[in-house]
Every structure is written in C-alpha cells, then in structure tokens.
Nucleic acid binder design. Structure first.
Length: 466
RNA sequence: GCUCCGGUAGUGUAGUCCGGCCAAGCAUAUCGGCCUUUCGAGCCGACGACCCGGGUCCAAAUCCCGGCCGGAGCACCA
C-alpha cells in the first residue's frame, strides 16, 4: 500500500481518506505502507511540507513503514527513461507542444516519434544535461495514438524546469511528470495494491503502458469516488494566499479543513478514521457530512470532556441575599458514581449572578433553575432566590410553560474570567468562562448548553462543534 | 465534444459480483416520549429510499436493453 501526497502543504481532511483507507488495508493484511512524497514540481513545493505531512500522519496514527522522496530518485527515473527510448517506447521532442497536442487529437504522430533511438537518445542527453531551456524540449512515452480516449494517447514524461527545487536546488533540469515517476516508483517500491481517488483513473491507464513495456507485474488498482467537503477551505494555493494576506492565522486557522486545524479545534483522529472507514471505498461521489463527523467525535470526546459554564453575552443581575448558597457541580457527570465524582464547588452570596442575555430575554420575570444551585426568579435587574424545592404548582410561577418543566440554565457568580470562543466560520463570541476551566487548557471542554470548545489558553478557545 | 465510471431515505452507507431469507439493515439528521439539576449523553418510538421505462424469470434493488441524471479525465500539476 502507499500514500502519495504532493509536497505542497500539510494534509487536509480530504487527504485523510487516502491515508486511512490505505492504512486500514495495511493493518488488515500487513505488507508495507509507503509514504511517498511527490515533489517533482518545484513551483508547488513547500519546504515545510515534508515534515508537516509526516506529523499529520502520526497524528492520524498512520504509521508508514517506508519513506520515499521522489526528488532523491532522479537517477532512477533517468535510467528508466533511457531504457524506454532504447526500446523505442519513448521519444524526445522539440516540436511545439501545440503541434504535439493537435496531432495527437487526430491520432497522428509528430516527427520525433518515428526517429531512431540514437537520435532521441542524443536529445535526451542534452535534455538531462541542461542544454535546452524551459519549454524547448520534452520527453514522451508512447501509448497508442489511435486509442479511442484521446486522454490516454502519448503522454509527456519529462519537461525542463528552471525553478530551483527546495531540496535539490539547481541540480536537475529535466523533471519527471507524475505519470512517469509514479509508474516507476510503484514498481520499484514493490507495490501490489494502489488505492487512490478516481481522478486518477485515466492516469492509471497511462501508467499501465510503462508496466507493460517493462513486463512488470501490475498492481491491483482501486479508485474511490470524490468527496466534496462543503463550507471548508482546502485548496493549498488559496490557503497560502490567505496566510500571506493575514486572512488566516496559519495552517491551523479554524476556518480551514487542514488536519492541523481540526486538531486545534479539538477533534479526535479516531473520529476521522471512523468516518472514512464507514464511508468505504465506493466510487460514488459523496458529500462529506459534518453532522455525522461531529456525532462520531462527540461520542469519543464526551466522556473525557470536563463540563464548565460559559456565559456568552452575559447579563449581570444583582443578587441580594444574606447567607451563602452552596453549589456542587460534577465535572464528568457521565462517569463514576455521584459520591466519588470530581466536582466544582462554589459558595454564592450577596453580589451578582450572570446569565446569558439569551436566557435573560427568554425567562425574564419567570422562575428558573440555576443548575446545581436552586430555584430563582429573574427580575429586571436582579435575581431572587426562591428555594431548593418547589412544592407548589409550577404554573403559578410560569403561566404558559408546561407543567413540571422549569428551565434549567447555567450561571456564573464571581468564579469567572473573560473568554473568547472562535468559531470555524470566522466569527467569535465573547463572554465569561468558569475559572475552573483554565485547569484544562489544551483540552476540549464541554461548555454546558453551548458546545464543545478546545480551550487554548486563559483567554480564548476554538469551537469544536455543538 | 470525446473516453471512462456511477445512481439505495435529507446525509453517509449495508445489500448488487453468485436473483428468493430485502414488504430493504445500520448510522446521522429531524420530530415525539422516557430518564436526567445541560438544549449534552443514554434508552424507546416515529419519519423517511432501491433514478425512470421496458425485458428475462415462478421471483429483480440485484441480470439485460433504452433513457434520464450525476461525476471523473482530456496540462511542460499531482
């Protein structure tokens, strides 16, 4: 099995499918899992990508057995190409590419195609040694000029590049095209199975020609369908531009679909794995369902997320009360029994109590239950303690609300710090956060009645999902 | 336009190869109920699909033909 991302940037949620699918087969059937970084287009290469890709895979718990970097293998590609030219299966052309394309369209060869290996070899040597300038020459692998699908007819295997390579500098001038290097590497990396997106189906046909000429054993190919991931920015070039312009804070900006961004938002890599394993390898195109993904993640993180109160857009209400009320609120209500549970404990007395403006608007003048504190009546500017139990008919207090249903809302009183939650759509919400949550920075907390938030530091956090 | 590939509930899938056990399973979403001092979790229930038309067959989501719709590729990117 192999994973072959390009060295243009970190992996995103779309790449994760390729990685997970290959890894799942690897886990099930063994063999080897090759990470091959395809960096044969220097204009798109990002020097930091080599490391970022490996970090992303480790985070996903995808443990590759071999690392192959294509720019280290030019000598192999060159010797293979020379081989093909000698076999009359490839040629080197200096004719304009417009002519190459149009004749191909008509099923006609350009003149170099029929020239002798000696003539082509001579041009090939000049190409490798850098005697041609960018655009002056290119090497082509023969397929079948009469192939019914024009996309499969003779394809370019090498071109001249004068942009320096991030790893190799100006050492090479002749750069292999993806279809050539992939075929050669798939063979020499000893791959028996290739799983990749269906955008490669035509490429597979081209690559098979090289396998045929060399009599190599063909791997088993599987192409999965396209996943469209809505409401998310994935395109590396766009992200780079956005980072430069300051629109994004970095590769891990919460608006992005990169794995580092999802990590920072507090997603579990297990949720990503589960999602793609359940999606399978069908060739149908699908739309990525954030809802299902969120649900998987929620189930994974729910038990380990401490609960805290976050009052966004707080309204402060005066609390005139002689004495102290004790609040004892479990940190992990899902786990353990109530006696041994870890709790947050507060004493609330005269002063003020904050609730969200949303709750204030909705329940003004009514009876509510402040979670784990007691029954209260919300006034215009103050809040009044009623008691721990309400024996009378609730409807006496809240006419119009259903019987026995007192709204339970969250609150803060003196035990809070200002906090900002940054959402994936780029907006943010400010409010008060229970101070105890700061003990859990770097972790996902569940802000009760609000959602899951990865608390990054004492000032802000990224919204994970509801 | 050319060449391939594919169409199961709102979404994601199981079943299609080798027709019957599929009056179509699961998950998610939505709605309702129970439980609960979170609108979370859990439990129960409801909702909701085989693209259309022919054909073969005792029997078709499954096989065949036609149509419709969708996607991929057609680079000196990967």
């Amino acid at each position: 099995m192999r994973m072959a991302p390009s060295a243009s940037g970190p992996l995103h949620i779309g790449h994760a499918r390729m990685a997970i699918l290959n890894d799942e087969y690897f886990r099930r059937y063994g063999g080897k899992l090759v990470l091959r970084i395809e960096d044969t287009n220097p204009t798109n290469n990002e020097p930091e990508a080599y490391q970022m890709i490996q970090d992303d895979l480790h985070w996903l718990d995808v443990n590759f057995t071999d690392l192959v970097i294509q720019s280290k293998r030019f000598e192999l590609y060159y010797s293979e190409m020379k081989n093909l030219i000698e076999m009359r299966k490839a040629y080197v052309a200096t004719s304009p590419t417009e002519e190459f394309k149009s004749r191909k369209q008509q099923g006609m060869p350009i003149k170099e195609r029929d020239e002798t290996p000696e003539e082509n070899l001579e041009r090939w040597d000049k190409m490798v040694s850098g005697d041609y300038a960018k655009g002056e020459a290119y090497a082509v692998v023969k397929t079948d000029l009469t192939h019914p699908n024009p996309a499969i007819r003779d394809f370019i295997a090498f071109r001249i590049v004068d942009t320096p390579h991030p790893l190799e500098g100006d050492r090479y001038k002749a750069y292999p095209m993806m279809n050539f290097s992939v075929a050669v590497d798939d063979h020499y990396n000893g791959l028996t199975h290739v799983i990749r997106g269906k955008d490669h189906t035509a490429n597979t046909e081209k690559q098979k020609y090289i396998f045929g000429y060399r009599n190599w054993k063909l791997p088993f190919y599987l192409h999965y369908g396209k996943v469209s991931i809505e409401h998310t920015i994935l395109k590396t070039s766009l992200i780079k531009k956005g980072i430069r312009s300051g629109e994004f804070t970095g590769w891990d900006d919460p608006k992005l679909g990169t794995l580092v961004a999802l990590k920072k938002r507090g997603f579990s890599p297990l949720a990503i794995r589960k999602y793609y394993v359940e999606s399978g390898i069908g060739s149908v195109d699908t739309t990525f369902s954030w809802e299902i993904f969120y649900s998987f993640n929620r189930k994974i993180i729910d038990n380990v997320s401490p609960r805290h109160f976050f009052v966004n857009q707080p309204v402060s209400l005066k609390f005139e009360f002689e004495g102290k009320l004790k609040a004892s609120i479990p940190l992990y209500p899902q786990t353990g029994n109530s006696a041994t549970q870890e709790k947050r404990e507060y004493l609330v007395g005269k002063g003020s109590i904050s609730i969200t403006s949303q709750d204030y608007q909705k329940f003004k003048g009514e009876l509510v239950r402040l979670k784990d504190l007691g029954y209260f009546k919300i006034g215009d500017e103050n809040i009044e303690y009623i008691g721990q139990e309400i024996l009378e008919d609730v409807q006496k207090w809240n006419p119009g609300r259903p019987l026995g249903k007192v709204p339970i809302i969250h609150w803060l009183s003196g035990n809070d710090v200002p906090f900002k939650v940054i959402k994936p759509d780029g907006t943010s919400e400010e409010g008060l956060l229970e101070k105890d949550a700061l003990r859990f920075t770097g972790k996902v907390n569940q802000f009760e009645r609000y959602g899951y938030v990865n608390v990054l530091d004492e000032k802000e956090g990224y919204f994970t999902h509801p």
